[in-house]
């Protein structure tokens, strides 16, 4: 095996490896959506976030517009403070409502944004006022049981 053949093969090998890495980052992982592009952060308080995790998607009308970057507990209001990182291409009115929703019956939880009608747009660092907590199954069941019991009492 002479020198130039070795060089050729090593060149082919390194090129293939780099193409594989490129394939992994572009086609498998979505480099396009991993934009270091402009984004702004807003916060929202929730009474209960259920199973919401950091890096959960934020969707509006079903389209992913950002990601949850931080979840922490506020020890003064006893509420969860969720930081939302939203792509700057998407602007929302000030009275936008944030809900914690579940994709599918048992799927992961995400934040759904519903745009309001306010003419002023939300800015970096603002706080969403209208929020709706995650649905906790136990609460739902106990509510249902309580209502049933009430009905039974009324009909007597």
């Amino acid at each position: 095996m002479n020198r130039s053949m070795i060089d050729l093969w090593v060149g082919v090998f390194v090129a293939m490896g780099l193409i594989a890495l490129l394939f992994l980052s572009l086609k498998v992982g979505n480099l396009a959506s991993f934009s270091t592009a402009e984004s702004y952060q807003i916060q929202a308080n929730f009474a209960n976030i259920g199973g919401l995790k950091v890096r959960a998607p934020i969707k509006s009308a079903g389209v992913v517009v950002g990601r949850v970057t931080d979840v922490r507990f506020d020890n003064e209001s006893f509420e969860a403070v969720v930081t939302l990182n939203i792509d700057s291409r998407f602007q929302f009115p000030k009275d936008t409502a944030a809900k914690i929703l579940t994709s599918g019956l048992l799927g992961e939880q995400y934040i759904g944004l519903e745009a309001g009608g306010d003419p002023t747009m939300i800015k970096n660092g603002d706080r969403l006022k209208l929020t709706q907590s995650a649905v906790v199954l136990e609460n739902l069941i106990s509510q249902f049981m309580f209502n049933k019991a009430q009905e039974g009492k009324d009909s007597k």
């Binding site: 090998f13 293939m16 780099l18 992994l24």
Partner: peptide, 13 residues
Amino acid sequence: MPLLAALFSAMGI
């Protein structure tokens, strides 16, 4: 090694 691992993953996918 990293090039081989990347090739392995790409080929596997």
